[in-house]
């Protein structure tokens, strides 16, 4: 291989890296340009605070933002203790055979397609919820339960990995002092992996925030402020999927770019926060 060829190839690699990074800006740019009429008219922030009522020509999205926040936060709140418990089982508490089995199951879970969770949710979970709570069944609770199952594996694997990263000498020290397994978990492993737990939480939040199908299939998609667990709600993601069929010159259609921009900005901020917390840890 000649020198010139080497240089050309290096430049090609660089070009691809740059182009791939450019995609991030391209995606944002596209949404910005198509949502521009909103931003120009000063409508963007209006949209964030107005209700959605197409018949009156008002296309605000705050109910969707509330729906997204309710579903994502609740599922993280449900999933967090569940994941912490499972991760503790895998790394510390359970006998090795069960721990290995649980780890395998959790890894397998990450491979289950989202749409399958949604499908089973419709035909298995919703009738149960309907029976128990006498509602329509399509509600925040159903979506939250399925979403909890969907995001838990991510958290469990991340938690148990950061539990396993605790230096062996610390563990040995507890063992030689005669500490029990629970003491080991509470006083050594958990404090040592606080950072990993926080990161796992944020990743799971991002995942819950960006999920489309579970909310679309199970939450009922009614545009309203969610008041209780049994209310129907619509998330930003589901809103995009539902409105996409509209005429693409209309203001109604433009408003989904406001949803897109909101989602994009939120996940970006989340990533930046993760990055910042990693940097703080290093020195």
């Amino acid at each position: 291989m000649t020198k010139a060829f080497e240089t050309v190839l290096e430049k090609t690699f660089f070009f691809f890296a740059l182009a791939s990074a450019g995609v991030v800006i391209l995606i944002f740019g596209f949404m910005l340009v198509l949502g521009l009429p909103l931003i120009k008219g000063g409508l963007f922030f209006g949209l964030l605070t107005q209700p959605w009522s197409p018949h009156h020509g008002v296309f605000g999205i705050y109910q969707m933002i509330a729906g997204t926040l309710a579903i994502a936060l609740l599922s993280v709140i449900f999933a967090f203790p569940l994941s912490l418990g499972c991760a503790a089982l895998i790394s510390v508490l359970a006998p090795p055979i069960f721990a290995g089995f649980l780890r395998k199951v959790v890894q397998m879970m990450t491979g289950i397609p989202t749409v399958v969770f949604g499908f089973v949710g419709i035909f298995l979970l919703i009738p149960i919820v309907r029976e128990v709570f006498n509602g329509g069944g399509m509600c925040i609770l159903s979506a939250v339960i399925m979403l909890t199952l969907l995001i838990s594996p991510t958290m469990i694997l991340f938690f148990s990995e950061s539990f396993d990263r605790v230096p062996k000498s610390y563990i040995n020290a507890v063992d030689s002092l005669g500490g029990t397994r629970v003491q080991k978990l509470l006083y050594v492993i958990l404090p040592c992996s606080r950072k990993g737990i926080l990161t796992g939480l944020m990743l799971a939040l991002g995942r819950a925030f960006g999920d489309t199908l579970i909310a679309l299939m199970l939450a009922g998609n009614a545009v309203q402020m969610p008041g209780s667990l049994l209310d129907s709600a619509r998330t930003l993601t589901a809103h995009i999927a539902l409105v996409i069929a509209a005429d693409y010159e209309s203001l109604e259609f433009k408003s989904i770019f406001a949803c897109g921009i909101t989602l994009y900005l939120f996940t970006t901020v989340l990533i930046l926060m993760l990055r910042a917390s990693e940097r703080k840890e290093k020195p």
């Binding site: 791939s20 990074a21 995609v23 991030v24 391209l26 995606i27 596209f30 949404m31 991002g206 925030f209 960006g210 999920d211 489309t212 993601t237 995009i240 999927a241 996409i244 989904i256 770019f257 897109g260 989602l263 994009y264 996940t267 970006t268 989340l270 990533i271 993760l274 990055r275």
Partner: peptide
């Protein structure tokens, strides 16, 4: 950092793109 952001973008937003 860019690739992390790209990985974090919800799939529906990529669909919208």
């Amino acid at each position: 950092l860019f690739f992390d952001i790209l990985a974090g973008i919800p799939s529906i937003v990529i669909g919208l793109f």
